[in-house]
Simulated scan of single mutants.
Amino acid sequence: MDPVDVVLTKDAFTALASESRLRMLKDLNVRRMTIAELAADLDLAKSTVHHHLRVLVDAGFVAAEDDGHAWVYYALTPEGHALLYPHDGVRIRILLATALVTFVGGIAALAKFLVVLLSDETPGIPMLGGGGAQVQEAPPWDLLILGLALTLIGSVLVGYAYLRWRKRRRIDQDIS
């Protein structure tokens, strides 16, 4: 399914201004429904549901499906689906970029820690008054902790992005 851009017009803002209409969109995301089903699910009068559906249809988020039977079913349009799931691929790319930056930052902090730890020229702290031996500075443990934390967070974000990508791919396969 190709990404659909949702154009936010006056009708779109009007449609999204009601909690009842937002709940209808979420219910229709699960499956197509009749006015009676939506009224029962939302605990609203059928006339109220009909009014809300007219607003959603006018905004282009919902379409009526009259298949020749006694009932008219309402379902989300591609724009309605895109409203609930805005460009999921973009979210995954942002998540992966964040994970990469975090992971690289963690590796850089670990590398800096190792360079300081293994260098022969560990800076000393001069004694007050200028006399005596210098006290050796302790290794920068904060760099180690920061590096490990960033590397772990980056790894978790990559895993999460992969799981979202798999879920999105499965949904796309089910739709087609």
Rank of each mutant, 00 (worst) to 15 (best):
K26V: 06
Y73C: 02
T48P: 03
A111E: 07
R21S: 10
V135C: 03
L84A: 01
I107F: 04
H81S: 11
L8C: 03
A64K: 10
A108E: 03
T98F: 00
D67K: 14
D67L: 15
G89Q: 05
S18E: 14
A45R: 07
V57H: 11
V49Q: 11
S18N: 13
H50S: 15
G80Y: 13
V135A: 10
K46C: 08
T48A: 10
L16G: 00
A108T: 03
G131A: 09
V62F: 14
T14Y: 00
L16W: 01
S47E: 13
A36F: 08
R91V: 14
G60V: 11
L96N: 02
H87A: 09
D120Y: 05
A97H: 00
L117I: 10
V104Y: 09
V115E: 15
R21N: 09
V6Q: 10
R54A: 15
L84K: 00
L96Q: 03
H52G: 13
D11T: 00
A40D: 07
V62N: 13
A75S: 12
H87W: 09
A82K: 07
I125D: 01
G132P: 12
V101L: 07
D66W: 08
G60C: 07
T77F: 12
G131E: 11
R91K: 15
L128N: 02
L25C: 00
A111I: 08
R91F: 14
G132Y: 13
D5V: 06
E19T: 12
K10L: 08
A108M: 01
V104N: 06
D120C: 04
Q136V: 15
D58N: 06
R32I: 05
D120K: 06
G129Y: 06
D11R: 00
P123A: 10
L25Q: 00
A59R: 08
L118Y: 10
W71Q: 10
Q134A: 07
L100K: 13
D66K: 08
L83C: 05
E137T: 07
I92P: 02
G124T: 08
F113W: 14
V104R: 06
P78K: 03
E137L: 12
E37T: 01
V135F: 04
G131N: 07
K46L: 07
L100F: 12
V90F: 10
P126A: 13
L96E: 06
S119Y: 01
A97C: 00
L110P: 05
V55R: 12
I107Y: 04
D43A: 05
L42C: 15
I35C: 12
F103K: 06
A82Y: 07
A59F: 05
V116W: 12
R31T: 13
A70D: 02
A36R: 02
D67F: 13
K46V: 05
D67Q: 15
M33H: 02
